[in-house]
């Protein structure tokens, strides 16, 4: 509980700095308008009210972003093309589909890697090396190529998400499945347990904490993948499309609202996995 006060202070400082920055960055426009209208530039009070209430500010003030968020989530029908819930759902559905695909693939590959030495030696270095490659950069290409094969809509985005969430899961699961120490494995051997029994009764349960840690990384990566995957399709639907169309038309408030919606979604998804983690670890008696 002693963390709430410091966090609140930091958040308040950030908001205050934000307002100062908004006044500073939007000032030029106000002065420009004043000189065009041939009137004296406003004083400090007038300047502040003029800068934080512009329609297309360089930096929208926090309350403008909050108002836009409120307007485009609560104040609008969910089916509307301008509703952030509609766009958010499109992104989230691609994220979740991709995340599920990536997780299943990652777990399967990890199981293969720990049971087959040749696979371990040949695939693992590449899996690690692939982390250093900016995979996100090829997202547009994947979308376009899949489009030309006839795959459209949800699946191409989900494939990018799957690709991004796949490697954290592989690396985490390999670590987790190897985490039981030699003593425990030897004990199972004295019980005459085979590889399968050792896997189900020891390795898999031992890997659960590692799995959840990599799931958290994986779902955040999935969301980034889904958002970037929406960019090259020409801003049709989704949070990425809102970012892109906002940047085309100079709608800064819309960009910031979409950005915050993405942040809220990311935080929500990670928190959801956190809840599942706590529940699972508690049931398994591993809660710390």
């Amino acid at each position: 509980m002693n963390r709430i006060l410091p966090v609140l202070t930091v958040v308040l400082v950030i908001v205050a700095l934000w307002y100062v920055a908004a006044v500073g960055m939007n000032r030029a426009w106000v002065y420009d308008q004043a000189s065009r209208a041939g009137v004296e530039p406003p004083g400090l009070g007038g300047l502040i009210t003029a800068t934080i209430n512009q329609e297309r500010p360089v930096l929208p003030a926090p309350h403008q972003v909050a108002a836009e968020l409120w307007k485009s989530t609560v104040g609008m029908a969910v089916t509307s093309k301008r509703s952030l819930i509609y766009h958010g759902w499109i992104t989230v559905s691609a994220t979740l589909l991709g995340f599920a695909m990536g997780t299943v693939l990652g777990v399967v590959l990890a199981v293969g890697i720990i049971h087959n030495r040749a696979m371990d030696l040949s695939v693992m270095p590449w899996a690690i090396a692939s982390q250093t490659i900016p995979i996100l950069a090829i997202a547009p290409m994947i979308i376009v190529v899949l489009n030309s094969v006839g795959l459209q809509g949800l699946v191409p985005k989900a494939i990018i998400s799957a690709y991004l969430s796949f490697f954290p899961v592989v690396v985490g699961m390999v670590k987790g499945l190897r985490s039981p120490d030699q003593m425990q494995l030897d004990l199972l051997k004295t019980y005459n347990a085979g590889d399968a029994a050792a896997f189900w009764k020891l390795r898999l349960p031992a890997s659960v904490p590692y799995l959840f840690a990599s799931l958290k990384v994986g779902i955040a990566a999935s969301l980034v993948g889904a958002i970037v995957g929406e960019l090259p399709t020409g801003a049709v639907a989704g949070l990425g499309a809102r970012l892109l169309s906002g940047s085309y038309y100079g709608q800064t408030v819309q960009i910031w609202a979409a950005l915050f919606a993405a942040a809220i979604v990311a935080a929500g998804l990670v928190a959801l996995i956190g809840v599942a983690e706590r529940g699972a670890l508690k049931r398994m008696g591993m809660a710390r």
Partner: peptide
């Protein structure tokens, strides 16, 4: 953990 790439247009 946020999708920070989103600030790119800004």
């Amino acid at each position: 953990a946020l999708p920070i790439v989103g600030i790119a247009p800004i």
